[in-house]
Amino acid sequence: MSLNNINSFDPKTQQQIRDIVASLKVQRAGFRHADLEFSWPNAEHISKGDLKSMAGLQDLFFTHHFTSHRRWLGPCIILAKRISVGLLNRLLKISMVRQVELNQHLWNLALTVQQLEQRVLLLEQQQREVKVGDRQ
């Protein structure tokens, strides 16, 4: 409901209120990071810097895949924390053609890196077989 019809305090009282709150600045600041007022970034206009701060990644490998396929952003962040850049890139390459399988297998956080590598090998092999089959 609009505040238009609310009678405000006189200017002197308003200033008094502001002064009181300002005097509490130190006490208020203790409650949370001062001025940390950012909103959760939308994947559509997310920056590399945002990504790093979101995931706390030091070695985030940023490729065109992240921006052109924003649906992959989250899983990639999760995976990138645990696997090498090389393996991540192989995953992304497979993801272009085998999204369904990746959905089924790779977002299981319980998978170990070794299991992930085995899955990637399997999927790459299947991909090669499909291509050979196509040519025949």
Binding site: I6, N7, F9, T13, Q14, I17, R18
Partner: peptide, 26 residues
């Protein structure tokens, strides 16, 4: 169904609270 105020506008917040408590029409 309610009055919405901005966090750092304390004079308005207080005026709105006063109205909610005392203005029977509101």
């Amino acid at each position: 169904a309610g009055l919405l105020v901005d966090k750092n506008d304390w004079p308005t917040t207080l005026a709105a609270l006063k109205a909610i408590l005392q203005d029977e029409e509101l």
